Amino acid sequence: MAKVLVLYYSTYGHIEKMAEAVADGARDAGATVDIRRVPELVPEETARKANFKLDQPAPVAQVDDLPNYDAIIIGTGTRYGRMSSQMANFLDQTGPLWARGALNGKVGGAFASTATQHGGQETTLFSIITNLIHLGMIPVGLPYSFQGQSRLDEVTGGTPYGATTIAASDGSRQPSGTELAGARFQGKHIAEIATRLFG
């Protein structure tokens, strides 16, 4: 049975919902799953004024816990076409893990959100995937066997590089059924691969 970590940063709750769907999919594959979030860097007063979602129940992740997992699936909102500074800060602390190859051969994945359809979903995913590769991990995306990402009858996120959602510039749009299904599919797919590799 694979052990999977869903590691995320969510300002307004969109990625939190996607993380829960990713975790559900991994559990459907029989994996043991933990959901953890990275620390908030914005001062609390500023975050409250900006209506950040500060009541997220997921425990805060610790860098030293990452080697305990067979697969790590990372999600974050987009900042100018790249991952959020909160997630980047957390990953920047993995140097000691990189130096000793602690994550070599583990399975990884990425999911993201943007304000608009063309707001940098794929570049954000690649900014995560680049970290996974440098850490020696095996990145796994969202294959086209998830047919929801090919639909043209609705506005939807989803790329072959990972599940995505569109939040709208004011955060008013919540993840759609198709987007959550893509997140579940990716979580299950990664957990199944991790189980094949690690039993």
Rank of each mutant, 00 (worst) to 15 (best):
L91G: 08
P39F: 10
P175C: 07
V4P: 14
L197P: 07
G75P: 01
G95F: 03
T124V: 06
T178Q: 00
D65V: 09
L5Q: 00
T195C: 01
S176T: 15
M18L: 15
V60N: 04
A29R: 07
A23H: 11
K106R: 15
P175S: 03
P59V: 07
R82H: 05
S172R: 10
A19C: 10
E44Q: 10
R36N: 00
R184K: 13
A163K: 09
V60G: 03
T94K: 01
G105N: 10
Y69F: 14
V107C: 08
G105I: 12
M1P: 11
F126G: 02
T159D: 12
A29C: 15
I74S: 08
Q121P: 02
P57N: 11
A71C: 08
A19T: 11
R79D: 06
R151V: 14
A115I: 13
A181H: 04
V33Y: 09
Y144K: 12
R79L: 09
G105L: 13
L132M: 13
D55L: 02
K106F: 01
E45T: 13
S172L: 01
H134D: 04
E154I: 15
S145C: 04
H118D: 14
Q62R: 13
A168G: 06
D64T: 09
R151M: 12
A31Y: 12
F126W: 05
A183H: 04
P39T: 12
D28N: 11
K49E: 14
G119V: 00
G108K: 04
P160H: 12
L135T: 00
K53S: 11
R173H: 06
E16R: 15
V63G: 00
A168L: 13
V63H: 00
M1E: 14
T164W: 04
H134S: 02
Q86L: 02
E40F: 10
A163P: 03
G182H: 06
I128R: 10
Y80I: 07
L54Q: 04
A112Q: 04
S10I: 00
L7R: 04
A163I: 05
Q62D: 14
A21N: 04
S169Q: 12
F146Q: 08
A88D: 06
V140S: 11
Q62V: 08
F198P: 07
A71P: 08
A19W: 12
G25S: 06
G136M: 10
A19D: 01
F126R: 08
I193W: 08
V155S: 15
Q93A: 00
R100P: 06
A31M: 03
T94N: 02
D92E: 06
Y12V: 06
R27N: 02
R196W: 03
M83T: 02
L142E: 09
